[in-house]
Structures are given as C-alpha cells and as structure tokens.
Design a binder for these strands. Structure first.
Length: 790
RNA sequence: GCUGGUAUGGCGGAAUAGGUAGACGCAAGGGACUUAAAAUCCCUCGGUAGCGAUGCCGUAUCGGUUCAAGUCCGAUUACCAGCACCA
C-alpha cells in the first residue's frame, strides 16, 4: 500500500531543509523567472483555486530545473486591504495580528502540497522594509508630477459617516447599515496612468499575452479619435464638446452638460431655473455610473433656462440641457446631441420634444452612407466628411482633432488604516511636501474605525503632527493610505533582492532576472492589477530603475474552479472545498494531479469529489509498477513508439498549458504497461521523471527506493526519439461524399494518384462506386481520400 | 447596458493547419475473485433501427461557405468574468 501521509511528510521535510528550490542570483545557468499572483491572506485560508495556478507553474518550474535553468519561483503576501481591516474592527484585533495568523496558515497549507517555492525570498507588502519602497516609488511619481491631488467623487454613507468602496455599496445602499449612499466630492491623490495610455496599448506588441487579455486591455484603455469643438454661449464662455463623430455637427439639436459640470456653478446667477438644476444634480448623485449610462434606462434631464449655445458651423442657436447620461469625467463633460444618429440622443428628444434633422443618408445607387443637409459636407462619404470638418474647425480655430481615452486616472487614496501611509506632509505655506525619511511607519493604533468626518483613523493620532521639512513650521501628515493595489504593482522586483535596504532591488539582480518569463494569474486581474503593474514598471523604466519596458514576457490565465454544483464557490452557497480536507483524505500528489486533470486549464471547471478518485487510482497503479520491473524489454506491439510519444506529448503539453492531456497520455501509457505486465528499470525511471512534475512526493520515494542515480529535482529532462514515434503503417481514410466508408493501411508514402487508385480498389469502396459517376476526387495530406459521386 | 469569453455523451473533458467526433477519467450496468463487503481485474457504455454485418441521426439554435464544418463566416439563445465606459 502507498502510505501517502508518511511519504509526503518525509519529502516535505527534506525539501524544507535543502536548498534545491532556492534560486541564486547571478548564477551561470540561464535564468527562468516564474511568477504567480501572490495571495491576499484571508481568514478563509487557501482556496483550491489558488492551487490551480501555483501547481501549474510548479510543474513548469520543476521541468525548467531539469532542463538546466536557474529557476526563480517565489511566493509572498499581498496583505494590506479592506477585509482584514473590517475583520479587525469587528473582532477588535489589530490587523497586523490577523495578517500574521493568516500568513502562517497560508504558508502551512502551501507547504503541505509540495510546491517548490523559494521560501528564502518570501515577501510581505505590510512589512516596513517592503512598503518603504512602495512609498519610495510614490515619492518618485510625485516628483515627476504623476501623483497629484484632484477633486474626485467618493461613495459616502451618511449613517456610518465613512467613505465606502464600490464593493460595499449594494443596490445604492450601504452594505453594513442599509442607508442610502450618496456621491461626495473629495480632493484625493491620483496617479496619472492616462499619461501612459498610448504606451500601454502600443507595447502590448512586445509581449506574449493571450489575445483575449490584449483586447480586453486595449478596449479598457479605449482609444478613440474625434474632435473637440467649441460652442459659443450667450454668457461669454464657450462650451467645448468632445465627439467621435464630428461630421454630424450640422445635425446638432442641443447641447448636454454633465450635471456636475463646473460651468453650472460658474454661471448659476444666469440660470433662471438654478434650483431645478441643482435639485436634479442632487438626485443624480445617488445613481451609480453603470445605471446612468444604461441604454435601456429612460432618459432624464433638465433644460437650462437662460443659457443658449450657438452651433459654430452654421450659427444656429441650440438649447442647453443637463442629463445624467453625460459623465463629467469623460471627454469634456459636454456632448453635442445628434438625435438622428444616436439612440440615446433620440430617446432624449422624444421626451423633451426637440426638433432635429438627419445629416446622413444611404445613397440608393452606391448603397453607401453620405452626408446631407450639411452645407459644404453634402455628398461626401463619412470618412471624407470627418476629415473635412476637422480641417474646417482647425482652420477657423473653433476646434481641433483630439484623441480621447476611456482609461481614467487611478484614484490612489483610501480613508483607511490598513494600508501604506502616503509619505506626504501638508504644510499650509509649502503645500504638499515629501517625507524624506522612509519608511514612514504606519503607527499602531487601537481604534481602526474611520473618523466622523470620513477621514482615516490616522487623523485621530499624534502621529499626524510633524514639522514641514521645507520651512520647519508645524504641519500635518497626509492621513489617507494607499490602495491595496500599490504593493502588488511592483512585487515581482522585490523578490529579486528582498533584503536590500539601499534600493528596491540591486541593479545586477534586476538585470539578471528581469523580465518575468512567465506570469500566470486570473482573468479578473486583466484590467486592474495587470495594467497598474505595467504602468508602474514603465515609470520605473523611464527613471532608469529597471531595464525592460515591460515587466512580463508571457502571461497566461487559469480558469476558475467552481463548486460541484457548477456555481462559484462561496460560503453562502455551501459548496466550498477546503484543500486541507482533500490533502488529508487523498494526499498532496492526488490534489495536484486532479487540479491539473480536471479540465482545460484556461477554462473554468467544477470540482468533483468522484472524479478525483481516478487520479488516486492512477497513482496507486504507478506505485505498483515497481513490482513488475523486468530486465526483458517490453514486447508489446508499438510499445517503444508509445513510450516515446508520451515523453513528447507530456513535454509539449506542459508548454501549451494542456496539463489535462499530458496526464491523460500518462494514464494511457500506464494502461499499456499494465496490459503487458512488465516495465524495464530505465522505462520506470523515465516515467518517474515525467510524473515527478505533477506528483513530486511519490515519485521522489520511488526514485529513492529504486536506487536511481542523482537528485531527481535536477535530473536531465528525458529526450524522445522522433524516428521511433512514427509507426511503420499509416492508415488512410476513404470517404464517399464526405462520409467515412473504409480505411486501409499503407507502409510507405504514396502520391495522390496512387492513393486514389488504391482507394478505389478496396472491395467495399469498389462495390459502392460500381455504376456510379465519380465527379471529384480529393486527396488530403496523405491521410484521407474523398470520392464525390452522383 | 458595455467589454471580453464559453457552449461537445449521464458527468469532467479529447479532437496540430477544416479531414475517422467522443481520447483519458468519473458515474452507471454486467461479470470474475471473496463467506460477505471494500479494494482489484475483465466486458459494455451518444441516440436510433437491426439477431447481426451495418444503416440513419448527432458537437446550444437557425442559416451560410466548402468535396468535407465541433473547427471558418453571419444571426440568435444561454451561461461565465470584468466594469470606470456614451460622446
């Protein structure tokens, strides 16, 4: 019997005390840097979903070591964040204590599945020697003008008196107390990621990411070309609109300003119905952005009385409205409405009875859209009209071509305790000044609740009082902390040199290890973490800290593991699988194998308590191979060919994320070995190496028991003999009218003509084509013949 | 609503460039071993007609391209992930 418990704990102890998985900087071997998203150490403990990612790259890591690489496969903790803070508040424990407990639990769990992480490089975003460098990067961003304070809106719960994360707002109400959530204005730190928008799109060319990740990022950044055009008003200040369809300007029926737009405040004396407008603004502040722009939602708005605008191309006077489907932080916060060619504008005018005209029509002769009712644009196609109108407005200095991005700047401040302090001192005279003494330590406090005015609890401490480094006067520290994304935006650099106190990582270590060769993570991080970290890396590249414009050479994504009812695992659904229980019942090797076998790695797959048994049986069969080792070569037909095929397939499949079929081919081979009842020592050795990547414990035990030479962790990855793979005979499929009717074997390649001739000679085919007219004969890749008959 | 995906037996899933649909595993049924059970081993296993050889149908739905479609194209439906998104 395979006693997995004692085998696994034995090898885990050995790996813990040896340096096999420790990567050495500047080794002469070629480097290979494998990265998985480091976990947020939650109180729930490790999830089977974490393991899917970690085991997959553990397989690659073990393979690369056998292929002679110096492999870096590190692990750490992304430990700042809201859930820990909330847990701390609720249970009255310091978040640091909670974090320590959770990290301990996670680490124990990870070790129990035998993942070959380099534990000597463990990092933790909440330790001061780590966040010292997160703060340092912020300082550099501040120095370069990429970190500034700007007016933003936050979710505000007037009952809890605190700022809420989007996640904490459920159906427009506070998740905790159920009170209505409103939008409140607040000056906050933002990072100007939009300055990098174009490069973040362009440099996707440099990296090997799945297409779905690249398109998702490109669409998220959302480049659109259009024009800014100024509409003069009767109050002496222009309203500048942004449009992607400037050619439709002759069809403008009215102008819409976002309800929050400053223009309204500036000219409130001129607005006759200002009370109505402000009332509307108040109403809108309660509506979520997604709802505001929902195309199916009935359009609302208010006409601004007392202000009118003029269409700059034809001098026509147009009314001005406010409506919530125009967002203040998008484009210029003002749009021109063209109801004939925009559904939302059309819906709006239906309600407010505004007249409008069409400016495009299909030409009945050419079938193409062309301009009408548009003065000098008439008769032009859309593309030419766009070009011409942009030339026109530029010449008249009433507008210009403009590239707009959907990407918004990154709000980089949270009114929370459990995050990196922003190293800024607010001096009344000097404004915001950098704290030079890093790390700026997060002080220990006892009450983690936000204060009554919605500021971080840090504002209630003495810690905030300091002197301005510039002028020496009394000044206050910034009390907002960084968002949880900060630490994870550069962590892959800290692994290279985790103890360094002089810089975030030494130049040599960066030059040696970067870029990350293979980064695996979840699709859910495509547009936030993955983009943020690319942004930070590009910034570090610009200031000469790193040597590559992109941090990750290759990115892959794993699918989610669902509960056995095919739904997302969650406590409330009661379908959570605890890895501890599985390891206890079946062992680490089985859970590793099963998670890789359960389905296509890139797609989601439901957990099955039944299916996992197949993986246990497979390992039992493997364990028993040692009893049938023989000196005689296996005489089963095609055995050598099958064996070589398996070596090839396992190797290739791993590179292509096809772990499931790699395992299937090993299962297939073990069936063949068992059928023949024998295996040679050498064959068992090779099989053991292949399986070691997936099931390292049991294979290490067999390696030792059988007395195979060398350290299995560094044994040479087996080669296969291509000439032994192709079997002597090739099967040719014969179809008639696309349906398979017969097959036959050939022992050497034939040309198409001979193949067709031979196909027709097959007795069954001969019978079927008797007295029939053959109208077409197709021969494909020396593999298939198709005869088309009437 | 928007963006990106996904859809194949009872179930998880296989199927290099369009070329034998259902590899491998689970479950189920039958059998062997056993006093019995577990474990293990052997056989069957998409639907349908047939004793059988074999035929016909079948990859979410509808349509198209092709000698040939799970695979390519168009539309539809359902499900999953993300959302800051209309200009």
């Amino acid at each position: 019997m395979r006693d997995f418990k004692s085998i696994e704990s034995k090898w885990q102890k050995i790996w813990d005390s040896c340096d096999d998985f420790h990567a050495v900087n500047m080794s002469k071997k070629p480097k290979y840097y494998l990265l998985v998203e480091f976990p947020y150490p939650s109180a729930q403990g490790l999830h089977v979903g974490h393991l899917r990612s970690y085991v997959a790259l553990d397989i690659v890591a073990r393979k690369r070591r056998m292929q002679g690489y110096n492999v870096l496969y590190p692990m750490g903790w992304d430990a700042f964040g809201l859930p820990t803070e909330n847990y701390a508040i609720k249970n009255n424990i310091h978040p640091r204590t909670v974090t320590e407990q959770n990290v301990k639990q996670f680490k124990k769990q990870l070790k129990s599945v035998g993942i070959s992480f380099d534990w000597k490089r463990e990092i933790n975003t909440t330790s001061s020697n780590y966040y010292k460098w997160t703060q340092w990067i912020f300082s550099k961003l501040f120095e370069k003008g990429l970190a500034t304070k700007e007016e933003t809106t936050v979710n505000w719960c007037s009952s809890c008196k605190c700022v809420l994360a989007n996640e904490e707002v459920v159906g427009g109400q506070c998740e905790r107390c159920g009170a209505d959530v409103t939008q409140k204005k607040k000056k906050q730190w933002i990072l100007k990621i939009t300055k990098y928008a174009q490069r973040l799109i362009d440099d996707l060319k440099l990296v090997d990411f799945p297409d779905r990740v690249k398109t998702q990022q490109t669409n998220w950044i959302g480049r659109s070309e259009g024009a800014k055009i100024s509409f003069p008003t009767n109050v002496g200040e222009d309203l500048t609109i942004f449009t992607t369809l400037p050619e439709t300007i002759f069809g403008v029926s009215h102008i819409i300003v976002a309800p929050e737009h400053k223009f309204i405040d500036k000219f409130k004396d001129k607005i006759k119905n200002i009370d109505e407008v402000l009332e509307y603004r108040k109403k809108v502040s309660k509506v979520k952005k997604e709802e505001r722009t929902d195309a199916n939602k009935a359009k609302t708005g208010v006409k601004i009385l007392g202000i009118t605008a003029k269409n700059p191309v034809n001098g026509k006077e147009v009314p001005v409205f406010v409506s919530d489907y125009v967002l203040v932080d998008h484009g210029t916060g003002v749009v021109m409405a063209v109801p004939a060619h925009d559904q939302r504008d059309f819906d709006f005018v239906q309600k407010y009875k505004i007249e409008f005209i069409s400016v495009m029509q299909e030409n009945p002769e050419t079938g193409k859209m062309e301009m009408i009712n548009s003065d000098f644009l008439n008769g032009l196609d859309v593309i030419s009209a766009r070009k011409k109108i942009i030339e026109y407005v530029s010449e008249k200095k009433i507008g210009e071509k403009h590239v707009s991005y959907k990407l918004r700047d990154w709000i980089f401040a949270r009114q929370r305790y459990w995050g990196e302090p922003i190293p800024i001192i607010n001096c009344e005279k000097c404004g915001p000044v950098l704290e030079k003494n890093l790390p700026l330590i997060l002080p220990d406090i006892e009450n983690f609740k936000t204060s009554e005015n919605g500021e971080s609890p840090l504002c209630l401490t003495d810690w905030i009082h300091t002197k301005c480094p510039k002028c020496g006067r009394d000044a206050l520290r910034e009390t907002d902390t960084m968002p949880q994304w900060a630490g994870s935006s550069w962590y892959f650099l800290r692994y290279l040199d985790p103890e360094n106190d002089e810089c975030l990582a030494s130049k040599e270590s960066i030059n040696y290890w970067m870029p990350v060769d293979w980064y695996n993570g979840g699709m859910e991080h495509t547009t936030l973490h993955l983009l943020y970290s690319r942004f930070w890396h590009k910034f570090l590249y610009d200031i000469g800290v790193v040597n590559t414009p992109e941090p990750y050479k290759k990115r892959t994504s794993h699918g989610m593991i669902l509960g056995n009812n095919n739904e997302k695992m969650s406590k409330s659904r009661g379908n959570v699988v605890n890895p501890n229980d599985v390891v206890e019942e079946y062992g680490a090797d089985v859970i590793r194998l099963y998670e890789m076998f359960m389905g296509d790695f890139e797609k989601s797959a439901p957990w099955s308590d039944e299916s996992i048994k197949g993986c246990k049986r497979f390992l039992d069969k493997y364990w028993n191979l040692k009893d049938i080792v023989s000196d005689e070569p296996n005489i089963r037909e095609n055995f050598v060919s099958d064996f070589n095929k398996t070596i090839k397939k396992v190797g290739n499949d791993i590179e292509n994320l096809k772990f499931n079929t790699a395992i299937a081919s090993m299962m297939d081979l073990i069936g063949k070995i068992k059928d023949s009842g024998q295996i040679t020592r050498e064959e068992l050795k090779i099989f053991t190496i292949l399986l070691n990547l997936f099931a390292p414990h049991v294979t290490s035990e067999i390696w030792e028991t059988m007395g195979f030479e060398g350290n299995i962790n560094f044994v040479e990855w087996p080669n296969y003999d291509e000439s032994l793979i192709s079997s002597e005979f090739k099967e040719i499929v014969v179809q008639i009218n696309g349906k398979v009717r017969d097959t036959f074997l050939i022992d050497s390649d034939l040309d198409d003509e001979e193949l067709i001739k031979k196909s027709k000679e097959q007795p069954k085919i001969k019978e079927l084509i008797k007295n029939k007219q053959i109208t077409k004969e197709i021969c494909a890749r020396n593999k298939l013949v198709n005869l088309v008959i009437n």
